[in-house]
Simulated scan of single mutants.
Amino acid sequence: MRIALNSVVLLAAGLLTACNSEEECTAELLEKKGAELDAKVAEVQISDPEKLFAMQSKVYEAVQNVAAAGEDISGQCKIIDELVAELSK
């Protein structure tokens, strides 16, 4: 599970950025959001590992979407933001 989540962060840092509706999706912002996601994953892994396990399929899907995005990162911002938000619930 941790490997898949790390893959999301690495792909995010290399390809994408997470952004809110006021910010343009850029690789720099993605790297920042990837770090936020990694921190949230580490937090949830300690506080609620079952939650992290339950989200495994969503994380895998996110990794696939990020990998398939290539140069078009615009839609990936929302994916990373949604993962962080769901982990924060």
Rank of each mutant, 00 (worst) to 15 (best):
L30S: 09
Q76G: 10
E71I: 06
E61R: 14
A13E: 11
D81S: 15
V41F: 07
K58I: 07
E23Y: 01
A4G: 05
L37H: 11
E31R: 11
C77S: 15
I73S: 09
C25E: 00
L52C: 02
I73C: 04
V59C: 06
S7P: 00
I73P: 00
K58G: 12
L29R: 14
A27N: 06
G14I: 01
T17L: 08
G70E: 09
E86R: 13
E61F: 12
K58E: 15
G34K: 01
P49L: 03
I73G: 11
E28C: 00
T17F: 03
V63E: 11
I3S: 03
I73T: 07
E36K: 13
S47N: 07
T17R: 10
A27G: 02
Q56D: 06
L5Y: 10
L52F: 05
Q45V: 01
L16V: 12
L52N: 03
T17D: 10
C19K: 08
Q64I: 10
V9D: 00
D81F: 10
L5H: 05
G70T: 07
I3T: 04
A69R: 02
V59R: 00
K33P: 00
A4P: 01
S47A: 12
I46H: 01
L37A: 09
D38S: 07
I79R: 09
M55N: 13
A27C: 00
A35V: 06
L52K: 01
Y60L: 12
E36R: 12
E23I: 02
A62C: 15
K32N: 11
D81V: 11
G75A: 13
A68F: 06
I73V: 12
A12E: 04
S57D: 15
L11K: 08
S21N: 09
A85Q: 14
L30K: 10
L5D: 06
I46L: 10
T17N: 07
E36Q: 14
L29F: 07
A18T: 09
E82T: 15
L30T: 08
A13C: 02
A69T: 08
A35W: 02
Q56F: 11
L5W: 07
S57A: 15
D72I: 09
I79K: 13
E36C: 06
E71N: 09
E61V: 14
E43P: 00
A85E: 15
K33S: 12
G34C: 05
A4V: 11
L52D: 06
G34F: 01
A35H: 06
C25H: 02
L11W: 06
E24Q: 07
Q64S: 14
N65M: 13
D72H: 08
V63R: 10
V84P: 06
V8D: 01
D38R: 03
L16T: 14
S21K: 09
N65Q: 15
Q45D: 03
D72V: 10
K58V: 07
L10N: 12
